[in-house]
Design a protein around this nucleic acid. Structure first.
Length: 561
RNA sequence: CGGGGUGUGGCUCAGCCUGGUAGAGCGCACGGUUCGGGACCGUGAGGUCGGCGGUUCAAAUCCGCCCACCCCGACCA
C-alpha cells in the first residue's frame, strides 16, 4: 500500500478532548475519529488493527472447536422479559418500539438470543457439547463513556457461549477458553493477568477476568507472587490484629471530633482501634450499619453481595435512625441490621455513641452489640495474601476479556433443556466468554507506546513494515524502493510505502507515530551502499541489510516482534 | 444522576474580567527557494465565536435557559 493513497489523517497535536494515552495516540495516528460521546469511526488503519485482532481471535476460537454464528442486534423485548433482565437492567439498555408498537431492545449482550436458539435446537445429550461464538457490535447506553475507545456505547465484542450436559463438561469448556484466551492475548503482545472476578449481572458462580495492566484501566486487582490474583471487588487478604488496651467500656466526650483521624488523635489511639460505622439504606429502604476497622475502607461491591444494592444514608436519616450526625454513629444500642467486617470479630474498640459529641471506648463486638460478619473491607497493598501470606500488591488494569460459568440461569428461564442418557429432562449448563477487540488495541497502545507514538507488536500492527522513500522524485531511489517493496510483498510481508512528496522529518515522525514494528529507509545512502536501513520501532535500534538479503532478514526480524 | 471544566476557521489555542464589529501558530491552496528528523519567504482561501432568548446605540465579551464534549464520582454484561 502506498501512503500517498492511504487515508490516514495524522495530527501533530494531542486532541483537546483526549486524556488517555491510547486515546490521544489513536486519534493522532489517524486510526479513529470520534462521532459523539462513546461512538467512534474506525479509519483504515484502525480497521486493519481490528481486523488483525479479530482474525487472531477467530483462529484461536476455531482451534478449540467453537463455531462462529451471527445474531441480530435488534431483539424483541420478549426474550429479555423471559430472563427477567428486561426489568433488572434499566437505563443501560437501549429500548425502542417498532412501527407496530412492539417493544424492542438493542442487544447489549446475547445470552437471551443464543439461549433462545439452543432451547429450540438442542434436544439430546447427543447434541452436546456445543460452543458458539459471534464477533459483533453490542450497544450499551453507558452512564459515562470514557478514555477514547476503552469505554464506548457501541463496541465490537467476541462472545462465545458453551452448552454442556454437566458441570464436568462446563469445566472442560471453561478451561479450553482459558487456554484460547491466553494464546490470543499472548499473540497480541499484551501483558495480562487472569484474575478471580465477580460474576455480577451475568449471574453465574465462577468467573475470571483477563486484565492488562495499565494506568488507564478502570479496575484494580490484587496480586501475589504465589499466583493469587483477584479483582479488588472480591479480593481477600489477611490482616494483623492490633494490641488492644484493657479499657473498660466508657462513654467519652469527643466534641466536634468526627473523622477517624480526628478521633484517633483526640483519644491518642491508633486508627485500627476504632470501628468505622457507615449507615446505609438498602434498595428496599431498610437501614443497615456497615462496620469496618478504622484503618480500613468499605469495599462497596462486597457489601452489595451481602445486602443487595444500597446507598449511603442522608443526614436526616442518620439523625432519625441513629440519633446522631455522621461521625458519632455506632453499633451499640442501635437496633437495625448490622454487618461487621471479619476483622472486627475479636477486639476492644472505640465506636460512635449515637449521640452528638460522644464516643464509647472499650466496646467488644458480640458482647456490647450483635452483628453479622462478612468480608466487606477493601484490600490494601501490603496486606497478606490469603493463600500464602506474602504481601499483596495492587495494580490498575484494563479488562480485556472475561469468562463466566453461567450454570442454568438462562437455560432454566428460557426452557433450554435436553434429555440425558437416562431419558431425564435437564437444563443445559452454560458458560459465557467475552473479549473486547478494541480494548486489546487500546491496551496495547497503553502498554507499549513511547514519546514518539505507538509501538505495535507485529501481529496486530496495521502494516508490518513502514518503508520510507526519502526522495520519491529520484528515479533510482524510487526504483530501489519499488524493488524492495516487491521482494517484501512476495515474502508475504505487509508494507506501507511512504512515497509522499513531503519532507523526510515529517515522514519519520509519521512512521514513529503509526508505530509499525519495522521502519525501512531508502535514500541516497542506500543507493550508494545497496543497503536498506532498518529501525526496530521498539527501542528504535538501527541496522542495515544488503538489499539482496533484506526480505529474508526482515521476515526473520518480524518473527521476534 | 451529583460535582468540576470546556465550547472561537480543519487542528491547538488567544481574545471575554474592563462590550466598539475576530486573531495567532499549525494545517490547506498557489508561486519560489529548499530536501536524511515535523524547513523558509511571499500570496491566498477559510469563522452562524455551540444554540435560543434577553440587556444595550452596539454582544465572542454581560444575564438567563438549553445543548454538546471532557474529567471525578455513582453506575458498569
Amino acid at each position: 500500500m502506498k501512503a500517498s493513497e492511504l487515508f490516514f489523517p495524522t495530527l501533530k497535536e494531542d486532541p483537546a478532548d483526549a486524556e488517555a494515552i491510547s486515546h490521544k495516540l489513536m486519534v493522532r495516528a489517524g486510526l479513529v475519529r470520534q462521532l459523539a460521546a462513546g461512538l467512534y469511526i474506525f479509519l483504515p488503519l484502525g480497521q486493519r488493527v481490528m481486523d488483525k485482532i479479530c482474525r487472531i481471535i477467530r483462529e484461536e476460537m476455531n482451534q478449540i472447536g467453537a463455531q462462529e454464528i451471527t445474531m441480530p442486534i435488534l431483539h424483541p423485548a420478549e426474550i429479555w422479559q423471559q430472563t427477567g433482565r428486561y426489568d433488572e437492567i434499566g437505563d443501560e439498555m437501549f429500548r425502542l418500539k417498532d412501527r407496530g408498537g412492539r417493544e424492542m431492545v438493542l442487544g447489549m449482550t446475547h445470552e437471551e438470543v443464543i439461549t433462545w436458539l439452543a432451547a429450540r435446537e438442542i434436544r439430546s445429550y447427543r447434541d452436546l457439547p456445543q460452543v458458539w461464538y459471534q464477533i459483533q457490535t453490542k450497544l450499551r447506553d453507558e452512564a459515562r463513556p470514557k478514555s477514547g475507545i476503552l469505554r464506548t456505547r457501541e463496541f465490537v465484542m467476541k462472545d462465545s457461549y458453551s452448552f454442556d450436559k454437566d458441570e464436568e463438561w462446563l469445566e472442560y469448556n471453561y478451561q479450553r477458553h482459558v487456554k484460547a484466551y491466553t494464546r490470543i492475548f499472548h499473540r497480541c503482545g499484551l501483558r495480562f493477568y487472569m484474575v478471580e472476578s465477580d460474576p455480577g449481572m451475568m449471574g453465574g458462580a465462577t468467573a475470571h477476568e483477563f486484565m492488562a495492566p495499565s494506568g488507564a484501566g478502570e479496575d484494580e486487582v490484587a496480586l501475589c507472587k504465589c499466583g493469587y490474583a483477584a479483582n479488588l471487588e472480591l479480593a481477600r487478604s489477611m490482616v494483623y490484629s492490633p494490641n488492644f488496651p484493657e479499657a473498660g467500656r466508657e462513654e467519652v466526650a469527643t466534641p466536634g471530633v468526627r473523622t477517624i483521624a480526628e478521633v484517633a488523635a483526640f483519644l491518642d489511639v491508633t486508627p485500627d482501634l476504632l470501628i468505622k460505622s457507615l449507615l446505609l439504606i438498602t434498595e428496599q429502604g431498610e437501614p443497615v450499619l456497615a462496620m469496618v476497622r478504622g484503618d480500613h475502607e468499605l469495599q462497596e461491591s462486597k457489601m452489595a453481595r451481602v445486602v443487595g444494592s444500597y446507598r449511603p444514608a442522608h443526614p436526616e436519616e442518620m439523625r432519625e435512625i441513629a440519633g446522631a450526625e455522621a461521625g458519632f454513629i455506632g453499633p451499640v444500642g442501635l437496633d437495625i441490621r448490622k454487618i461487621a467486617d471479619d476483622s472486627l470479630k475479636a477486639g476492644i474498640f472505640v465506636t460512635g455513641a449515637n449521640k452528638d459529641g460522644y464516643h464509647i471506648e472499650g466496646v467488644v463486638p458480640g458482647r456490647d452489640f450483635d452483628t453479622g460478619y462478612a468480608d466487606i473491607r477493601r484490600v490494601k497493598p501490603g496486606e497478606k495474601c490469603p493463600e500464602c501470606e506474602h504481601p499483596l500488591s495492587l495494580e490498575r488494569v484494563i479488562e480485556i476479556g472475561n469468562i463466566f460459568k453461567l450454570g442454568t440461569r438462562y437455560s432454566e428461564s428460557m426452557g433450554a433443556r435436553f434429555l440425558d442418557e437416562d431419558g431425564i429432562e435437564r437444563p443445559i449448563i452454560m458458560g459465557s466468554y467475552g473479549i473486547g477487540p478494541a480494548r486489546i488495541a487500546a491496551a496495547t497502545v497503553e502498554q507499549l507506546s513511547d514519546e514518539k507514538g505507538i509501538v505495535w507488536p507485529a501481529a496486530i500492527s496495521p502494516f508490518e513494515a513502514h518503508l520510507v522513500l526519502m526522495q520519491p522524485a529520484d528515479k533510482e531511489q524510487a526504483a530501489m524502493a519499488a524493488k524492495l517493496y516487491g521482494l517484501l510483498s512476495a515474502a508475504g510481508i505487509e508494507v506501507l510505502l511512504d512515497d509522499r512528496d513531503i519532507r523526510p522529518g515529517a515522514k519519520f515522525a509519521d512512521a514513529e507515530l503509526l508505530g509499525c514494528p519495522l521502519r525501512l529507509t531508502i535514500g541516497k545512502r542506500s543507493l550508494a551502499e545497496e543497503t536498506v536501513e532498518v529501525q526496530i520501532r521498539r527501542g528504535r535500534e538501527e541496522q542495515k541489510f544488503p538489499l539482496g538479503e533484506a526480505a529474508d532478514k526482515i521476515a526473520e526480524l518480524l518473527e521476534t516482534l
